[in-house]
Amino acid sequence: MLKLYKILFFNTLILGTLISISAYSWFNMWIGLEINLMSIIPLMKSHNNSYPAEAAIKYFITQSLASSIILLSITMTYHSNDFLPTQSNLMMMLNSALLTKLGAAPFHAWFPEVLEGLNWMNSLLLLTWQKLAPMILIMYNMKMIVFFSFIIIISAITGGIMGINQTSLRKLMAYSSITHIAWMLASMMSLKNIWFNYFIIYCIISLNLIYIFFILKLYNMAQFFSKINNNKTINFFFILNFLSLGGLPPFLGFLPKWLAINNLIYNKFYFISLILILSTLITLYFYIRITLSTLTLSAQTILLNEKSSSNFMLIYFNVLILNSLFICTSMFNFL
């Protein structure tokens, strides 16, 4: 049952993000981020969450620390003549705080831990909507190319390597998100429209995957291997969506990576392109390892299933999304 306070705080959550991305001054931007932070904390209170209080406290401490650094850097920027730090150091402070809010490496330690204590609906909010405001604010002042190149490389390597031995699906999605953050920051460096396309496609694929996890109530690999084979249709769509999240060419997830790499090489960011491609190969390795294990003979399959319900909306939405790469490339050819 949807409670009234959740509807109220969900609306203020959206309002806080919209205030941040449409603010004319840094101070109004900070106010929007605070409204957003104060709105998501009550939404984390749920009986379905594993550790609601622990996740909420961890999230609040890290986000309030980042907010205080943002406020400090804004105040010092207004009075930069009276303080010792130069303008570039202040911008580095501001960008570091925004990257902490985003969950990019090396400021990522809170992100998998908070996600582990939440249910799938709160995890979807944290993986998609909560990234919108910090991303757009980073886009406004993305002038420190060396600093952001370092963040992109560290995020790509961390997300790829740390996701290999994960047994929790929520932590797997968290480290996958860190890799995608690196791709999004890299797409910002070349062309802003590519970032927007990447973000929308990432949100759609994450929604598909998390909806499958939500309806099957999957949280770790043991549950995953025992339940995913009961419904062959959902198993098939899960495999395709997982490969799409990794960016395998026939699927929609390949399109934004294709555009990002194309523009990075055009702008002569060769080393960043190499690191991003290698990290994506690592993530594809453990995605394929998970998907292949559901298809092999070692997977447990229940042959006599009492009730086999097919979810029409899930099938329709997945077929539409998985064919979107063909639709997009066809549109580009005719434009």
Rank of each mutant, 00 (worst) to 15 (best):
F213R: 03
I288P: 10
I234G: 06
N311V: 05
I210A: 02
M221S: 01
L297D: 13
N229M: 02
I200Q: 07
I205S: 13
I290V: 12
K257V: 00
I212Y: 00
M313F: 15
K268F: 10
K268Q: 15
L314R: 04
K217L: 09
N318M: 03
K257D: 07
N241S: 11
T280A: 10
L303V: 13
Q300E: 14
C203W: 05
T233V: 12
Y316M: 14
F286W: 14
I282E: 11
I210C: 04
L281K: 00
L292H: 12
F238D: 05
M313C: 01
P250C: 00
N267E: 11
L314I: 14
Y287T: 15
L292N: 13
I201L: 07
F312Q: 04
Y270D: 06
Y211K: 04
N311E: 11
L274D: 08
F238R: 01
N230Q: 10
S309V: 15
Y287Q: 12
L314A: 10
Y211H: 10
N220E: 11
Y219W: 06
K268G: 00
I302W: 01
K232S: 15
L216P: 01
I290Q: 01
K268A: 06
F225Y: 15
K232W: 09
L278E: 03
N263Y: 04
G253L: 03
N208A: 07
